[in-house]
Simulated scan of single mutants.
Amino acid sequence: MSRTPPSAPAATPGEKPPHRQSRLGLVALILAVLALPAALSLVLGIIVAVIVLIVGLVALIRATRVREISTGQPVVAVVVAIAALILASVVTSAANDRVQDCGARTYDDARECLQGDN
Score class of each variant (00 low, 15 high):
Met1Glu: 15
Met1Cys: 10
Ser2Met: 09
Arg3Trp: 15
Pro5Tyr: 13
Pro6Asp: 14
Pro6Met: 14
Ser7Ile: 10
Ser7Thr: 15
Ala10Trp: 04
Ala11Thr: 00
Pro13Leu: 02
Pro13Ser: 08
Pro13Met: 05
Gly14Leu: 11
Gly14Glu: 13
Gly14Gln: 09
Glu15Leu: 13
Lys16Gly: 12
Pro18Gln: 06
Pro18Asp: 08
His19Thr: 13
His19Glu: 12
Gln21Asn: 12
Gln21Pro: 07
Ser22Glu: 00
Leu24Asn: 02
Leu24Trp: 04
Leu26Asp: 12
Leu26Gln: 14
Val27Glu: 10
Ala28Glu: 00
Leu29Gly: 04
Ala32Ile: 08
Val33Asp: 10
Leu36Thr: 15
Leu36Ala: 13
Leu36Tyr: 11
Pro37Asn: 03
Leu42Gln: 07
Val48Gln: 01
Ile51Arg: 07
Leu53Thr: 03
Ile54Tyr: 02
Ile54Pro: 06
Val55Asn: 10
Gly56Thr: 00
Val58Thr: 04
Val58Trp: 05
Ala59Tyr: 02
Leu60Cys: 08
Leu60Trp: 08
Thr64Glu: 15
Arg67Glu: 15
Ser70Leu: 09
Thr71Asp: 06
Gln73Asn: 13
Pro74Gly: 08
Val76Glu: 03
Ala77Ser: 09
Ala77Tyr: 09
Ala77Lys: 06
Val79Ala: 12
Ile82Ser: 10
Ala84Phe: 07
Ala84Lys: 04
Leu85Asn: 04
Ile86Val: 15
Ile86Ser: 07
Ile86Phe: 10
Ala88Asp: 05
Ala88Ile: 03
Ala88Tyr: 08
Ser89Leu: 09
Thr92Asn: 13
Thr92Tyr: 11
Ala94His: 07
Ala94Tyr: 08
Ala95Gly: 06
Asn96Val: 12
Arg98Leu: 03
Gln100Met: 09
Gln100Trp: 03
Gln100Phe: 06
Asp101Ile: 04
Cys102Gln: 01
Cys102Gly: 06
Ala104His: 00
Ala104Leu: 02
Arg105Phe: 01
Arg105Lys: 07
Asp109Ile: 02
Leu114Met: 07
Asn118Tyr: 08
